[in-house]
Simulated assay, not measured.
Amino acid sequence: MSGQSILITGASSGIGRACAEMFLAQGWRVGLLARRAEVLADIAAGHDGALALPADVTDPQAVEAAFDRFTEWAGRLDVLFNNAGLFGPSAPIDEVALDDWAQVLAVNLNGMFLCARAAFARMRAQTPQGGRIINNGSISAHTPRPGSVCYTTTKHAITGLTKSLSLDGRPHGIACGQIDIGNARTPIVEDLNQRARASGQPVQPTMAVEDAARSVLHMASLPLEANVQFMTVMATTMPYIGRG
């Protein structure tokens, strides 16, 4: 065991699951937080360093209980990978149902706020003080995809959250950085490419999700005196630069 601990939200699939498996392979103590308890149990099976934490990131009480359980089990919280999110509807704004808008905000913004809040409080109180929060932004934190008003709005907001946490965390030894991942082969990206095929649009290039996980591992493994403030890792030929 590395002696370090990380809690990963959205750990049941996609980037979160790839990160969980990679950190476990590196000997970290890993908290797996997501809604699907049975999937988390499968990931944790056979790993003494894994703790399944079934919870909904939009539920404040469930988030607090999960963080309490993790810190009691691991002894401290060194890193939070604040990852849980969903894309929502792909449509122009006047075709987006208000319920869909509210759901994306609840998960991508409120959920990330609640988890960052829980992590910050525990990192501030623990001895030795400090820790690291890594927020999963997105290419869409900088440049939107067409028809992504819900997702893009929340991911722009995450950049503000990252900067605020970085500033407010300085007196307490809490570092915060953001990873902006473009077109890793996850269920979200596969769904977007399926929508593209159905509408006759080009299918976008993708990269292995493990490459994104390695980038998160690099950020998490730095000493607290160093921080990756923002990292972009993406499929090399995806339409990001100049996508407009």
Rank of each mutant, 00 (worst) to 15 (best):
E190M: 06
Q201R: 14
Q26Y: 01
P202W: 01
G111F: 04
A141N: 02
R185L: 07
H156S: 05
P187W: 04
A198S: 15
L192P: 02
A220M: 10
V209E: 02
V30T: 02
L161E: 12
A44F: 07
A235D: 03
S140D: 07
N110D: 15
Q194C: 06
T153W: 06
T153G: 03
Q201D: 12
G31V: 10
L53A: 13
L86S: 05
M219G: 01
P205T: 07
V63H: 15
R29L: 13
R170Q: 13
E190L: 08
D59T: 04
H172R: 03
T71E: 15
H218T: 08
Q4Y: 08
L40A: 10
A220Y: 07
I43C: 11
N136F: 06
G85W: 12
A97I: 00
F120P: 00
E210K: 06
I174E: 01
M219A: 14
K155H: 11
F81I: 15
G200D: 00
W73H: 14
M207E: 10
A196V: 02
A25G: 15
L98R: 08
F87L: 08
R76M: 04
L114M: 06
N110I: 10
V79F: 10
L161I: 12
Q194V: 09
F113K: 04
T236N: 09
A41Q: 13
A97F: 00
Q4D: 13
G147Q: 05
R76T: 08
L77V: 14
V96G: 01
A44M: 10
L161R: 06
G130L: 09
V57K: 05
I134F: 11
N183H: 15
A106S: 15
A74F: 14
G31E: 11
I43Q: 09
N135P: 08
I6S: 02
S164Q: 13
A37Y: 05
G182I: 02
P144R: 10
Q4N: 14
M123P: 02
S90W: 07
A226L: 09
G16H: 02
R76A: 09
K155P: 09
D78R: 07
